[in-house]
Design a protein around this nucleic acid. Structure first.
Ligand SMILES: [Zn+2]
Ligand SMILES: [Zn+2]
Length: 716
DNA sequence: TACATCGGATTTTAAAAACG
DNA sequence: GTTTTTAAAATCCGATGTAT
């Protein structure tokens, strides 16, 4: 919407093949009744549809260069002449006359005299004194009857013309080459780069002059350029149609001795832009026996050839870049004809057509190892959640419910849509059905198992406020066993019987504790309510060898903080309002008493990239470092109930059968489509909530810790 | 008939993706 | 860094309403 203008009409055109196709169908009906503003292929049905009543100056001074130059482009031999029949002017009662000269009573005409097209304009039919040139309302029916006229057998309808062009080896629609003239015989609409504010508001044609023509005409002041709203950025789009690469897969040489019919990747009928005659075909030859003449004709015709690309044959045709996968029966017929002829000219060999949509891309190093970063995964997931979906090679637009888009068409459109769902060699079926494993972090999600909920709470050197973050710490000299072992003050005995009510011990220097309740009711601990360690005036640990245990927060609150820098001990665990055993440490960890798996989605979520504790890293044990508290180095035993996942993947029925509607329904059901990310929660978020740390600042007052650092991703 | 308004077709433009 | 693909944003056609 132009800034400052009222929104109305189309906001954006869907480029989904499905939707595009649907809309064409719908409009075709409408156009019959209302007169033609259809796309190419739908013939303009009013005189104006073909012949603009006035020729805007821009069209003369800055002709539009066609964006896509067709291989079909062929110059018309000098001497040949083309004349289009002009529709009668609306006042001429439907009489049809051949226009070859300027006629003041006629609208614009196009005539071809040599290999160029001359565009002649004449005075608008009803351009009375003043007023913008606009149509007299014409009778749609008679307008339809007029339609586009082509001279004798030179051209038939645009549609046939396309087929013709192929059959004739590339003699394409010459008009297509003429700048600004569309295949339907209609002049390409020319727009100014930016309209003035007046014209913009009025939705009327502006000019490049200032004041613009319209403002001059209506004596409007302050004719100034409007401003364009900056396009929003950061919107992920998902994979693009893979473009033809020089190194594109040109088919490994087939070892299959059986002769194969060459397969043409089916060019498609343009849905809304472009033109059939822009169909292009590229063929690579090498060991294909083909006569010089044939090659010659091919290379000068519709097909560009080369002989150096590959063994085997690649027939890779594609239409205008903007067209989308669609099929039309008559067009498909033409394609079959086309491919058949090619088949007769060149014995076919192996060919390979890259699949579409493209496969995910990965960074693959020289060892063939796939490097997938968290960012890669994030992007992939983002695209999967918000980007377009591909169903059997059809790109579905999520912004408008694809399933309803299908059903809303009704009748003919639906039938066509169903027809299109036929499998094609280019567009493999999309497997459907319930995916046999969960990716949501719950039971059955194998991915989430790689990460421990234990996290490093803060980076070395940070100062932790003990007064509000009490907890346990432990000197890690010995393998902790039951929190006894002489390491635990005050008595060196066990605490809570050594098992800490579900707390766990592991590795040197790491203390993992369970719920705070573990000390409740433990008389021996409760008695130790005084701090026996030494803190300096600032609350820092002054006596590294001291140990202390406190069983309630009040006894510790007088000590403000523990400086974790420049110490050599192994670990510190603390948790708000829990008991603390203070220990100088360079590392600190915390763990939930309840271990839950984060979902894959959480694992790959984007971090804010700052103020994160570094990811835990497993040391080699020789440098005095501390082993990662993650479970990466632990055996990945499948949970009970997960053992069969692998088997289920292989035997998944969905690989075989397919039902587009089903997968659509399922994706809607599971909320994996179109759901606001911010509202998606999973077990990992709950887990963090349980810790009381989610969304909160770190205990040292720095920015919140991202899930990524918690989960072991370090993107720095 | 002039012109305001509207729906939406068509074009332009630039961000994202692909490529080299 | 360059090219191509996409889709947001803009232009403005042509139908329609309405005041004159
Ligand atoms: Zn203007
Ligand atoms: Zn102006």
């Amino acid at each position: 919407m132009p800034m400052g203008a009222v929104q109305r009409g189309t906001v954006s055109m869907p480029t989904s093949p499905l939707l595009g196709h649907a809309r064409v169908n719908v409009r075709q009906e409408k156009d019959v009744g209302q007169g033609g503003r259809g796309r190419w292929g739908v013939l303009p049905q009013t005189a104006q549809g073909f012949f603009p009543l006035s020729m805007p100056e821009e069209s003369q001074e800055q002709p539009q260069t066609p964006q896509h130059v067709s291989l079909f482009d062929v110059s018309l031999p000098p001497g040949s002449s083309h004349t289009w029949l002009s529709p009668a002017s609306p006042t001429a009662s439907g009489a049809v006359r051949t226009q070859t000269t300027t006629n003041t009573d006629s609208p614009t005409i196009f005539s071809r005299t040599s290999n160029s097209v001359q565009i002649q304009t004449s005075s608008p039919v009803s351009a009375g004194a003043g007023g913008e040139a606009r149509s007299t309302r014409s009778n749609p029916t008679s307008a339809l009857a007029l339609g586009p006229a082509y001279e004798s057998d030179d051209l038939t309808s645009p549609h046939d013309q396309m087929i013709f062009g192929q059959d004739r080896g590339g003699e394409a629609d010459v008009r297509d080459e003429v700048e600004g003239i569309s295949p339907g015989g209609r002049k390409k609409r020319v727009q100014v780069r930016i309209a003035c504010t007046h014209c913009q508001r009025a939705c009327k044609k502006c000019s490049n002059t200032r004041p613009c023509e319209r403002c001059v005409k209506y004596r409007l002041d302050d004719c100034v350029d409007s401003t364009r709203k900056p396009r929003k950025s950061g919107v992920k789009r998902g994979p693009y149609k893979r473009r033809a690469s020089k190194y594109a897969v040109t088919g490994e040489y087939s070892t299959d001795p059986r002769p194969k019919q060459p397969q043409i990747s089916v060019p498609t009928l343009p849905s809304h832009q472009g033109h059939p005659s822009r169909l292009q075909a590229k063929i690579s030859f090498s060991d294909i026996a083909i006569g010089n003449n044939a090659q010659q004709s091919l290379s000068t015709g519709i097909i560009s050839t080369s002989t150096d690309v590959s063994r085997g044959l690649l027939i890779h045709s594609h239409d205008d870049a903007r067209t989308a996968p669609q099929q039309d029966s008559s067009f498909a017929d033409a394609q079959r004809t086309f491919s058949h002829r090619l088949a007769n000219q060149a014995s076919a060999h192996a060919q390979h057509i890259p699949t579409y949509p493209p496969d995910p891309r990965f960074n693959i190093n020289t060892d063939g190892i796939v490097n997938t970063t968290a960012n890669d995964l994030t992007q992939a997931l983002s695209a999967a959640l918000s980007g377009p979906r591909w169903i059997d090679g059809q790109r579905l637009d999520l912004s408008s419910s694809s399933s309803s888009a299908l059903t809303a068409l009704g009748g003919e459109a639906t039938r066509r849509a169903e027809k299109r769902s036929r499998p094609s060699p280019l567009y493999p079926k999309t497997p459907t059905g319930h995916f046999p494993i969960s990716l949501r972090g719950d039971r059955g999600d194998p991915f989430s198992r790689a990460v421990s909920p234990i996290r490093q709470l803060s980076a070395p050197g940070t100062t932790v406020d003990v007064s509000t973050n009490l907890g346990w710490s432990e000197l890690g000299k010995n393998q902790v066993s039951g929190l006894g072992g002489g390491n635990i003050p005050p008595s060196g005995g066990s605490i809570g019987g050594g098992t800490l009510n579900g707390g766990k011990m592991s590795g040197h220097g790491v203390i993992i504790l369970g719920a705070p309740e573990m000390f409740n009711g433990d008389s021996s601990l409760a008695a130790q309510s005084t701090w026996t360690g030494t803190l300096d005036q600032a609350g820092h640990v002054a006596s590294p060898e001291s140990t202390a245990i406190v069983t309630d927060s009040s006894s510790v609150q007088q000590h403000h903080s523990v400086n974790l820098s420049n110490t050599t001990s192994k670990a510190l665990f603390f948790r708000p309002h829990h008991n603390v055993q203070n220990q100088h440490s360079t590392q600190s960890f915390e763990i939930s008493s309840k271990i839950r798996r984060p979902s894959l989605r959480t694992l790959i979520s984007q971090s804010n990239g700052s103020s994160r504790a570094p990811s835990p890293v497993k040391s080699n044990g020789n440098n005095g470092g501390i082993d990662s508290p993650t479970l990466f180095d632990q055996p990945m035993n499948l949970d009970e109930g997960l053992e069969m996942v692998g088997t289920r993947l292989h035997s998944w029925k969905g690989w075989e059968d397919s039902a587009v509607a089903q997968i659509q329904e399922e994706s809607l059901e599971t909320g994996m489509v179109g759901q606001d990310d911010a509202n998606m929660r999973d077990s990992a978020h709950d887990f963090m909530d349980g810790l009381g740390q989610v969304g909160m600042d770190q205990v040292d007052g720095s920015a919140p810790i991202g899930f990524e650092s918690l989960m072991g991703f370090s993107t720095s």
